[in-house]
């Protein structure tokens, strides 16, 4: 009974701000506005499965996957460096890594715009060094760069927090038994850190696949992602039904990939995100 009283405010909060909105989204998703009022229909979903929108979905997934892979390749060694024992400035490094996250991510993305412009800072330096200019603002690469830059910490930190917890005696034991450093990494370190890797992948992939700000600012409105499509339906077109239908498809997609991830994680007995 006591427990219920403590839980009640959270339940009310969750009902108002999570359950009700989801019901509304589902409601809008399965109805269309006709002259005789709202009508139950699956037209919105049918419309989403037209090739042009499937292409948007595919583009979102593809860009998010590429960003996630790059984050993993860059992030894992970074996490290892941070977690390694011999490092004197470890705390300073971790701090330096986190400091940019204190700044609003929108501002940091705007900053990339001024860096990447034709007459921007990067090109000014390149030209000064007599090197050819780089025109990557408003291209797909710029969008990926923005995603990797913004979400990299979400890859590094979970891996880092798993790596520092690994019992060093295990590594020593492996070495004593004659494993070289590559084998130690392959057979001991990496398998033990898999839960961190999975959390990292989830935490990078989710925001990357749903982002709309990065693709708009750095992609110049040319690379419509699923997030842009939803935003456009709600804010500019006013077709809430279609927007809701896309959101539902998106939610299902995320739920499926989360289920897949957590299943994989359980098999590996990790101490991950959830």
């Amino acid at each position: 009974m006591k427990e219920n009283r403590v839980v009640a405010p959270y339940l009310i909060w969750m009902t108002i701000f999570i359950v009700l909105p989801i019901i509304l989204v589902i409601f809008f998703g399965v109805t269309i506005r006709t002259e005789s009022g709202l009508q139950l229909s699956l037209d919105n979903f049918k419309r989403f499965f037209e090739p042009i929108y499937l292409m948007v979905l595919w583009r979102s997934i593809r860009l998010a996957l590429i960003s996630t892979v790059i984050c993993l390749i860059l992030g894992y060694p970074m996490a290892m460096i941070l977690a390694s024992n011999g490092l004197k400035m470890k705390n300073t490094l971790v701090l330096l890594f986190i400091i940019p996250m204190w700044m609003n991510f929108l501002l940091r993305t705007y900053a990339w715009m001024t860096l990447l412009e034709r007459g921007g800072i990067i090109n000014t330096i390149l030209n000064f060094l007599k090197l050819p200019s780089l025109n990557i603002l408003y291209t797909e690469q710029a969008v990926i760069l923005g995603m990797v830059y913004n979400f990299l910490p979400f890859m590094v930190l979970p891996i880092y927090s798993v790596l520092i917890k690994i019992d060093k005696s295990l590594l020593e034991a492996a070495e004593d038994l004659g494993a070289d450093s590559i084998t130690v990494f392959r057979k001991v370190t990496f398998p033990l850190s898999i839960s961190g890797v999975i959390s990292g992948i989830t935490m990078v992939f989710m925001p990357a696949v749903t982002t709309f700000v990065i693709s708009r600012l750095l992609g110049g409105g040319q690379f419509t992602l699923i997030g842009n499509l939803i935003e456009q339906q709600f804010l500019f077109v006013g077709d809430w039904s279609f927007g809701s239908a896309i959101s539902i498809v998106m939610m299902i997609l995320i739920l499926v990939s989360m289920g897949f991830m957590s299943k994989y994680e359980k098999e590996n007995e990790g101490a991950g995100l959830w």
Binding site: I52, V56, G221, T224, L229, Q232, V237, D239
Partner: peptide, 14 residues
Amino acid sequence: LTEYDRVWTEVKAR
């Protein structure tokens, strides 16, 4: 106007 919406959405999504 919904036709204009559709055309613009399709151009942008391309």
